[in-house]
């Protein structure tokens, strides 16, 4: 366990049970997942039962209990993206990367996820890789977009 790292995160909070979600978000952001040992520390320091931590960690989409890839791909499946074939982008990416949505490539480079809406509906279909948005991303453009991150 990376003690200084988890201490660094916890030191930014007062240590009340209401800090649980922000603390887990920081861990997810920094570690790319929620490691078991770190969650034990969080439970102790925030005086929150481990069961509550796991219920939160499995309820919200942004948390993962297994390591995610270096790059997070989020394909938008909002209404407009659905109408404009967002699911085809998911299938095409899944086919190219050899993963199902929700999973990570073997080389740990990419995690393929879908998302309810990214809020760039005018440019549907849209996808986001890490913090970068790509609009009007037809199936024909997908491989080019992925290459930028390889």
């Amino acid at each position: 366990m990376d003690q200084p790292r988890i201490e660094g995160i916890l030191s930014r909070y007062e240590g009340s049970s209401a800090d649980l979600i922000p603390v887990l978000q920081d861990i997810q952001d920094q570690y790319n997942y929620l490691p078991k040992e770190e969650l034990n520390v969080v439970a102790e320091r925030l005086s929150v039962p481990l069961t509550q931590i796991y219920s939160v960690a499995t309820f919200f989409k942004m948390f993962s209990l297994i390591p995610k890839g270096k790059h997070q791909i989020k394909v938008c499946l909002g209404t407009t993206c659905h109408l404009r074939g967002g699911i085809k982008i998911v299938e095409s990416l899944g086919h190219r990367l050899g993963v199902e949505p929700g999973y990570t490539t073997k080389d740990m480079m990419f995690t393929l996820d879908t998302v309810g809406c990214l809020g760039s509906c005018a440019q549907a279909p849209v996808l986001m890789i890490d913090d970068k948005y790509f609009g009007r991303a037809g199936v024909d453009k997908v491989s080019k977009i992925i290459k930028q991150f390889k």
Binding site: S17, I21, Q52, V56, F60, K61, V115, G116
Partner: peptide, 25 residues
């Protein structure tokens, strides 16, 4: 600022409040 963690139901006010309190939405 309280960042959401990815749950549509948290747009509902009582669920949103639960999640600020540190519970599931």
């Amino acid at each position: 600022i309280s960042r959401g963690a990815g749950a549509f139901v948290c747009g509902e006010e009582t669920a949103l409040i639960a999640s600020i309190e540190g519970y599931i939405g």
